[in-house]
């Protein structure tokens, strides 16, 4: 056990699975870096340095730099998965997914169903998401609700280095297509991460804190903010349960419903847009399944329904904050 960053945790998961299983390959833009430029091998390891070190250990056969053509290499990864490899494709920013929706929505997500369970598509698409990086509206979206909406895809949103390693190894070993969301602002977060390989099952929420007054559900980077808010609320005499679903498809609705049955109050924190987002989805499930337990209306803490602003001042105002979570908590407690 040792302290590792989220970046190291993802790197270690990739390296350990590549050592364990020769069918695991990594492909994407700059995952090796320096293709065709002598002396620059393994220069970058992707824009965040996550895949650094993989190319020297596993070679260019298994760590493939691709052209800047998401529609091409995502399709290639899905095809490789359908024919026996276990590719981990790196689609730098989730904002660029649009150009390969057909490969993902109509092909990867459908193979198992359309071929009567006779085909598996063990592909993982790693992708960065989220705001706070001053990267403007085309490089800051969350978009995980889009993928959650499609049956046949699994959607994973780790909130810590420990979860990132265990969920990524699970994703690589899973026989279905998995979209793995990494928040840009989490890469330097440090956590205790075992040196050994381990898996965290999909569809099992993490309960980070237990309290009787209020249930806070948060995803990805929002988990940190929810925890901070819960600590502050505890000092004010309001005790919160904090739940991180970890995966939105499958989603552990039982843990959320059981907690709401105890507390009767729910605040959901989601960095995705409020319309048809995860907060709206979880609200609908709780309203339908646990209406009788609710002592107050459900509250969602999300950005407004607009693109992510480029202006730093506006971006700060746009994103959820602990203060906004506390305000929402006070309103449901009132």
């Amino acid at each position: 056990m040792s302290k590792k960053s989220f970046r190291q945790a993802v790197n270690e998961a990739l390296a350990q699975e590549m050592r364990r299983d020769p069918r695991v390959i990594v492909m994407g833009e700059d995952v090796a870096g320096g293709l065709g430029a002598p002396g620059e091998d393994d220069a970058w390891g992707g824009p965040m340095g996550v895949t650094k070190g993989l190319m020297p250990e596993f070679g260019r056969e298994r760590v493939l730099d691709t052209p800047i053509t998401e529609s091409g290499f995502i399709g290639a990864a899905i095809g490789a998965a359908a024919t026996g490899l276990r590719p981990v494709a790196d689609l730098m920013f989730v904002d660029f997914m649009g150009v390969c929706f057909d490969q993902i929505f109509n092909q990867a997500a459908k193979f198992r169903y359309m071929f009567g369970g006779k085909a598996v598509t063990p592909v993982v698409i790693r992708t960065m998401y989220g705001g706070g990086f001053r990267a403007a509206s085309q490089h800051s979206q969350c978009l995980y609700p889009l993928f959650t909406h499609i049956p046949g895809l699994k959607v994973v949103i780790p909130s810590s280095a420990y979860d990132a390693k265990g969920l990524l190894i699970q994703a690589i070993r899973d026989d279905d297509p998995v979209i793995f969301f990494e928040h840009k602002m989490l890469y330097d977060d440090i956590d205790e991460v075992p040196d050994e390989a381990y898996t965290i099952p999909f569809g099992e929420a993490n309960v980070l804190r237990e309290g009787g007054d209020l249930t806070l559900v948060a995803l990805g980077r929002m988990v940190k903010l929810a925890r901070e808010a819960a600590e502050s609320l505890a000092r004010q005499g309001i005790s919160c349960t904090v739940i991180d679903p970890r995966t939105t498809s499958p989603m552990d609705t039982d843990t959320i419903l059981e907690s709401v049955a105890d507390t009767g109050r729910l605040v959901i924190v989601d960095e995705a847009h409020p319309r048809c987002g995860m907060a709206a989805d979880i609200s609908a499930i709780v309203a339908q399944e646990a209406f009788g337990a609710l002592k107050a209306p459900i509250r969602m803490v999300t950005p407004p329904h607009t693109p992510v602003p480029f202006s730093p001042a506006l971006e700060d105002a746009y994103l959820p904050t602990p203060a906004r979570i506390i305000e929402a908590a006070r309103r449901v407690m009132a």
Binding site: P194, E196, A197, T199
Partner: peptide, 8 residues
Amino acid sequence: LKYKRLDG
């Protein structure tokens, strides 16, 4: 749970 998730 963390212990039980370790490979092996």
